[in-house]
Amino acid sequence: MMKQNKYDDQRFFDEYAKMPRSILGLEGAGEWHVLESMLPSLENKAVLDLGCGYGWHCRYAHKNRASKVVGVDLSKQMLKKAAELTDDSSIIYIQEAIEEINFDNHSFDVVISSLAFHYIKDFYKLSQKIYDCMKKGGHFVFSVEHPIFTAREEQDWIYNEEGTILHWPIDNYQLEGLRQTNFLADNVIKYHRTVSTYVNDLIQAGFRIRAIKEPMPTAEWIERDPNMKHELRRPMFFILAVEK
């Protein structure tokens, strides 16, 4: 099946470019303060970033003295931007679907991914591939949209007639699979899976769970954008750290 690649649609890419995380990098990503705290030391480590986008995590790994950094993304547009922002030829960018990675066994000490796996249909198969390409004792840390967020296709709050937020609805949580959502454009395909599926797929692939986090916005974020206070009412992100 052809992989959806919205990021190479120019209008979609232009809208993505306006987001805080696109403009400000890691400091513009609301979950970064938690994801960063879950990373191991990257010094002298071989690091793989799946769904690397603009390459923010790749450059972070290089800055933190990783010995090898590889970023993988399906989007030609994303990788072009990553190359423009990267002034070090030691960071390698590969245009490829995440699901199709085929690295040699025991190639990487650390694997990172940010908000990419909810676009992947078969998480268990990918988990197996990641496990195989990692060294024993290696760390795999990734974020996804929280299953509470992906359960409904609408992915939105319930409002009253005046447009005031009432609550975040959950429906069809146990019904895993494809969701056609609206994110910067209509008909964006994502895949919903439960918390237990994420965790059990990783365990069955051979990983040991180290930590699970559901990030909340910092006080600084809420002060900068008062609407962020609503992110205290339900988790938007889900971050897992596991070890081989």
Rank of each mutant, 00 (worst) to 15 (best):
E84I: 07
E36N: 12
E96C: 14
Q95T: 10
L79S: 09
S67M: 09
K68C: 11
P40F: 03
Y93S: 00
N64F: 10
R59S: 01
V34P: 01
A61L: 02
F103G: 08
S90D: 12
I91E: 02
C52W: 04
K80H: 13
L48K: 06
V34W: 06
W32K: 00
E84N: 12
M78K: 12
I92K: 14
G28H: 08
E36C: 09
I112Q: 06
V69S: 05
K76Q: 15
N44P: 02
F103W: 12
A29E: 14
G51S: 02
P40R: 10
S89C: 10
C58A: 03
V47C: 01
A66R: 08
G25H: 10
P40E: 04
A97M: 06
S114V: 07
K68R: 15
S107D: 10
D87M: 06
E36W: 05
K80V: 11
D88A: 09
D88F: 08
K80I: 09
K68P: 03
E31W: 04
G51T: 01
T86L: 08
I91W: 00
E96K: 15
I92R: 15
L24P: 01
G25V: 04
Q77D: 15
Y54M: 13
G28Q: 10
A97I: 03
F108Q: 03
L79Q: 13
G25D: 00
L26Q: 06
N64W: 07
E100P: 00
E27F: 11
H33W: 05
G51A: 04
V47S: 00
Q77I: 12
S113N: 06
S113P: 03
K45T: 08
L79P: 12
Q77P: 07
W32P: 02
L26G: 10
L42R: 08
L24E: 14
N105Q: 13
C52V: 01
L74K: 02
E31D: 15
D87A: 08
I101V: 12
V69D: 08
K80A: 12
V69N: 07
A61Q: 05
G71S: 06
G55K: 03
V72Q: 01
